[in-house]
């Protein structure tokens, strides 16, 4: 190649079709990593949050510490969180996932607990009267009724996680954040803009997907509300 090609990459433009076509695999890998980190974090967060919320609902004394600790975790800055976990996990994707799990816990526990607390006492008594044991009461009555509030928390947690993954760039596992970070250092406008837009698209798509799941999973709320 002798002369510099006069395309939008050489001119360093914000919007560049050339970039999309030539870096497709890099973008694809970044999106996949972004999704993996987000999904892993949210699923683990959910797996921890549900028992915590159920415990906080069941035993009054547990509610204070559970809410307190998760709130404190939430105030730790993401950059600091990822660096504080450095000695524990070393330089790996687990750092980012663990950090995101901590953040999602606050939102999830709060919302699930609020949902569980909103289950009317009469409903609970009616279920008991029908011979429901504590486990069946929880699984068949309380958790389904807490679903709308829990899903609201899940949506917020997921959207926040998508946006926070970008900070993972500091440890090299930031999905699209890696591209933003390296684009900043090389002053590569098209890369930064494309990665940022993809980030927002992922967040919005995840939110809509969860909204659809919520509508499908809680058909009874459709007739009443809206």
């Amino acid at each position: 190649m002798t002369a510099t090609p006069d395309d939008c990459l050489a001119r360093n433009e914000w919007i560049c079709g050339e970039y999309l076509s030539t870096r497709r695999s890099i973008l694809g890998d970044a999106v996949v990593q972004h999704l993996q980190l987000t999904v892993a974090a949210v699923l683990i967060g959910l797996a921890i949050a549900v028992p915590l919320a159920v415990a906080a609902r069941r035993w009054r004394w547990a509610a204070g510490p559970v809410l307190g600790i998760t709130t404190v975790l939430y105030t730790i800055p993401s950059l600091a969180m990822f660096s504080l976990l450095l000695p524990v996990y070393g330089l790996s994707a687990s750092i980012v996932i663990a950090g995101l799990v901590f953040y999602s816990l606050t939102l999830l526990v709060r919302n699930i607990l609020a949902g569980l607390r909103a289950v009317p006492e009469e409903t609970r008594q009616a279920a008991r009267g029908m011979g429901y044991g504590p486990v069946r009461l929880l699984l068949a009555v309380e958790l389904p009724l807490a679903l709308p509030a829990a899903m609201a928390g899940l949506r917020i947690a997921t959207v926040s996680a998508v946006s926070l993954v970008t900070i993972g760039a500091i440890v090299g596992y930031g999905g699209l954040g890696n591209l933003i970070y390296s684009g900043m250092n090389t002053y590569f406008k098209a890369q930064v803009l494309t990665a940022s837009v993809l980030c927002v698209i992922i967040a919005v798509a995840a939110d809509l997907l969860l909204l659809l799941v919520q509508r499908y999973a809680t058909p009874w709320t459709r007739a009443v509300g809206e």
Binding site: S163, A169, I180, G183, Y187, S196, V200
Partner: peptide, 18 residues
């Protein structure tokens, strides 16, 4: 506030920088 949550601050910062 929902839209604000979806936009990574880091991305906004870098976009403004460039």
């Amino acid at each position: 506030s929902n839209i604000g949550r979806a936009v990574p601050t880091f991305a906004v910062l870098v976009l403004l920088l460039l």
